[in-house]
Design a protein around this nucleic acid. Structure first.
Lengths: 264, 264
DNA sequence: ATATTAATTCCATTATTTGGAACCGAGTTT
DNA sequence: AAACTCGGTTCCAAATAATGGAATTAATAT
C-alpha cells in the first residue's frame, strides 16, 4: 500500500503508531465504540484491528465492556497522573496562576501548544461547582481560543505555516475566525499588543483574555488566560485585565528561562 | 530466552506490551531517566530499547529533552482526560461524593481496584490550598489504604488470593499491616462491619474511614473514603462518620446496579 | 426457526522487530 | 596529543511478531 503520510499519529512508528492511533480514536470518541465502528474509521483489516484492540485491552489502555463496546481504560489515568505531577512547566507556572486568579477572581487557564491543538495543563477556579478538573488534559482548537491564538502569535513563519496548513477550521459560534486569512489578521494584531482575546469564538457566552508564554529556545509555546461569562465580563473588563495577564505571562516566560534554560 | 512471565505489563501483548512497559517505567519514575537508566531496568538490548524510546517520543507519549533525559509526554494527558471525563462510574458516584463531603467537611476520595493497586478516580475537597487534582489517577497500595482494604474485603477467595500472592508489602509507617496474615485478620473484621479504617498506615498523620462499592457482576470493585489529619480526626470521629460512609457506599452500589446493570 | 449482521479465530505470507556489534562524539585520563 | 571511557546512536542478517483475507462462530433481527 502507499505509505500514506499523516500529520499526526498515522503511520511512521510501525506497530506502536498504529496501535496508538486505534487507542486514540476509541479514547477520544464521545461514545462507546463497537468493533465495527472502529473498523469503519481505522482502515485496518478485520483481523489486524481485532488483535490491536485485544492487545490494548490486555494492557489496560482500553476496557472491553460486556456489550462489546470499547472505552478508555484506567491505566491511562495512572500514566497521565505522573505526566501531570512531574510537568516542570506546570510547576513553574502554578504560583503565577494562583496570583492571577486572586487578582481577577475569575478562572485562570494554562495551556500548551502540542501539534495543532492546545492542551490545558492547569486551571485555577474558586467555585468548583462545575466538576473539578474537567478542563485539564482537554484538547482545544488553536484558532478560536485565547490561549491558542496567543501561542500562535509567537511562532515564527515556518512553524506557524506548518500548523496552519492542513488545519481544519470549524465554526463553533458566529464569532469563530473560521478561515486562514482572518486568523492571520488577528494574529498580526496580537503580535503588536501581546494580548489575545476570545470573544465568544469557541463557546457562546464565554470570553477570555490571554497572553503568550514560551521558553528561551521556543521548544515550549504556551499561553495563560483569564476566562469569564459574557454576562459578567465585557470588553472593558478584558481590557482591564489585559496588563495583568500580560505581566503574568512575561513573568512566567522569564522564570522559565531561568529555571529550565541553564541545564539545557 | 525464557518467556519470563511478569504479573503486569511484562510480555504477552508482543510489541505493544513491551513498548508500554518501557513507557511506564519512564513515566512512573520520580525523576527524569536517561537512556542508560532505562536500559538498566528494562532488560532490553541497547538497539531495541533505543528504537522503542524513539517511537514513544515520536508518538508524543514521551518527551526527549535536550539533556537526553526522558519525561512523560503531553499526549498522555490528552488521552487520560478522555478516560476520566467518560468514566461512567465516576459520573454516577460524583453526587454521592459531594454529599459525603458536605456532611463531613473533610476530603472524600473515590478509588477503584485495578490489578494490585488502587487508582483514585475522583476527590472532593474544599480547601484546595494543596494542588488541585494531585490525587486523581494516582496509584496507591491496596493493603494500607482505607479504600484499598475496603475493596479487598468484597472480593471472593480466588480473586483475593490472586492479588495477595505476589503482593510486595512495604512498611510505610509503623502502623502499616506489612504481611499477609495481619491483612487477612483485618479483612475479616472489615467484612463483618462493612467499614475499613486507615489508622496512619500509609502516611503518618493521615487517617480515614472507607467502605466498599461494587457493581452487580463484580466487574468493578471500588471504595469511598473520608480522610482527615490525625490531629483533628480521632477514632471517635471516624466511628461517627462510619455510618454515613457506609450508607453512601451502599447507595452508590445500588445506583450502579440500576444504571450499569440493565444494559450489560 | 431463519436470515442477517457482528465478532472472533485461523494460518500462510510479509513486514517489523530484534539484538549483537560497530560507530560516533564528548569528556577524561595517561 | 593519543588512548580510553562512557553514553548515545546506527546497522543489518536472523528471528519473530504483525498482517490480512477467508472461514467460523456468536449475537441479533426477522
Amino acid at each position: 500500500m502507499e505509505p500514506e503520510r499523516q500529520d499526526e499519529g498515522g503511520a511512521g512508528t510501525g506497530t506502536l503508531g498504529k496501535a496508538i492511533a486505534v487507542l486514540e480514536t476509541v479514547a477520544l470518541a464521545d461514545r462507546p465504540m463497537r468493533f465495527t465502528d472502529v473498523l469503519a474509521v481505522s482502515g485496518q483489516p478485520r483481523g489486524t484491528l481485532h488483535r490491536q484492540l485485544s492487545h490494548l485491552v490486555q494492557e489496560g489502555l482500553l476496557e472491553l465492556r460486556p456489550d462489546h463496546s470499547y472505552m478508555p481504560g484506567l491505566r491511562l489515568l495512572k500514566l497521565a497522573s505522573a505526566s501531570w505531577a512531574r510537568n516542570e512547566f506546570r510547576a513553574v507556572a502554578a504560583p503565577f496562576l494562583e496570583a492571577l486568579h486572586r487578582e481577577t477572581g475569575e478562572t485562570v487557564h494554562l495551556g500548551v501548544l502540542r501539534g495543532r491543538e492546545i492542551i490545558y495543563l492547569d486551571k485555577v477556579e474558586s467555585r468548583q461547582a462545575v466538576r473539578m478538573n474537567s478542563q485539564i488534559g482537554n484538547a482545544s482548537p488553536v484558532y478560536c481560543t485565547g490561549v491558542g491564538k496567543a501561542a500562535l502569535s509567537v511562532l515564527d513563519e515556518a512553524a506557524l505555516d506548518a500548523i496552519l496548513s492542513g488545519l481544519e477550521f470549524r465554526r463553533f459560534t458566529p464569532q469563530t475566525l473560521a478561515d486562514r486569512a482572518s486568523l492571520l489578521v488577528e494574529l498580526a494584531e496580537i503580535r503588536k499588543s501581546g494580548i489575545a482575546f476570545d470573544r465568544e469564538e469557541h463557546e457562546p457566552g464565554i470570553r477570555c483574555v490571554a497572553a503568550p508564554v514560551f521558553d528561551a529556545g521556543r521548544a515550549l509555546v504556551a499561553g495563560v488566560s483569564v476566562t469569564g461569562p459574557a454576562y459578567r465580563v465585557g470588553q472593558e473588563q478584558l481590557d482591564d485585565w489585559a496588563p495583568r495577564v500580560s505581566h503574568a505571562a512575561r513573568a512566567m516566560t522569564s522564570e522559565l528561562a531561568a529555571r529550565l534554560g541553564p541545564q539545557r
